[in-house]
């Protein structure tokens, strides 16, 4: 089986080299097939090595086992997903981003605030904010409210910094043009500066998707009701049910990627005019 794994690796690598350097190197087909082949190869080799070397289930279950556990336990994993993602991460994400945008508009209006709050915000954005999780869990209880609160705190500062940077991204000429149209502050904000800030804001939105899931899961390590993805991971690790842990991780990975993908899709629809999206 180990030999077979080696053979699979060589064949797949040769196929990918041929695809990447051969006549089809620039086609869309090659661009999608090559990563897929690579991912599949990793999965096949994983499966073969685990079975060939008879690695104990506790250390690394084979992908097929993970998939079957995932299917068999979907009735457990679905409520976990709802608890952690829909209730914890998503509500915190929306509240946090909303608050950050409102704060950014206020901060942008007053230069004093911008000069004072922005360095502080930059500093806080780089901090290990997961550390607030035990405190917030103590304040808001074990249910999803405390998870949402952790997510709000984690998402807030990156979003604030990005939005403030975005609101400043208009040229003097553009603002003067708005003045000649007789536009007031709010009209300029709505029609010129918020749209101009969108690329920056989406940068923040995208960073925040990952942070939101991390926050919701880590907060559950500090205490949770008897469901949720973080809870499932800690209890299953305790029971050495590694196949279930891996299924939760697969769910988390798919959720994270889908969430990011959804935000990126909205970005593409809303900021089609930006140079980085022009064909």
């Amino acid at each position: 089986m180990v030999l077979l794994a080696l053979v699979v690796w060589l064949v797949a690598w040769a196929l990918n080299s041929w695809l990447a350097n051969g006549p089809m190197r620039t086609t869309v087909l090659a661009r999608t097939v090559v990563p897929l082949v690579f991912g599949l190869t990793i999965l096949i080799i994983w499966e073969l090595l685990v079975r060939g070397l008879s690695v104990p289930l506790v250390i690394l279950p084979p992908p097929s086992k993970i998939l079957s556990t995932l299917m068999a336990n979907s009735h457990i994993l679905w409520p976990d997903f709802i608890q952690t993602f829909a209730k914890g991460a998503l509500s915190g994400y929306l509240i946090g981003c909303g608050l950050a945008i409102l704060t950014a508009i206020v901060v942008d209006r007053y230069d004093f605030l911008r000069r004072g709050l922005l360095p502080v915000g930059n500093f806080l954005a780089a901090l290990p904010i997961v550390g607030t999780a035990p405190i917030l869990v103590m304040w808001f209880g074990f249910d999803w409210q405390s998870k949402a609160a952790v997510v709000v705190v984690m998402v807030f500062f990156p979003m604030l910094v990005n939005t403030v940077a975005g609101l400043r991204d208009t040229s003097q000429m553009q603002r003067d043009l708005m003045r000649t149209y007789g536009a007031g502050y709010w009209q300029t904000l709505r029609k010129l500066r918020l749209p101009a800030a969108l690329p920056f804001m989406f940068n923040g939105f995208k960073i925040a998707t990952t942070l939101a899931l991390i926050g919701a899961i880590v907060a559950e390590f500090f205490g949770s009701p008897t469901l949720g993805m973080g809870f499932r991971i800690t209890t299953s690790v305790g029971q050495l049910a590694m196949d279930l842990v891996w299924s939760v991780i697969v769910v988390a990975a798919i959720t994270g990627t889908a969430f990011y993908g959804a935000v990126a899709w909205i970005e593409k629809r809303l900021t089609f005019w930006h140079p980085s999206h022009r064909k």
Partner: peptide
Amino acid sequence: MSVMPWAIVSQTIPIVA
């Protein structure tokens, strides 16, 4: 072409899990 898309995708995964 093989690794880079996965490296980008992996950034969207909550690795701390």
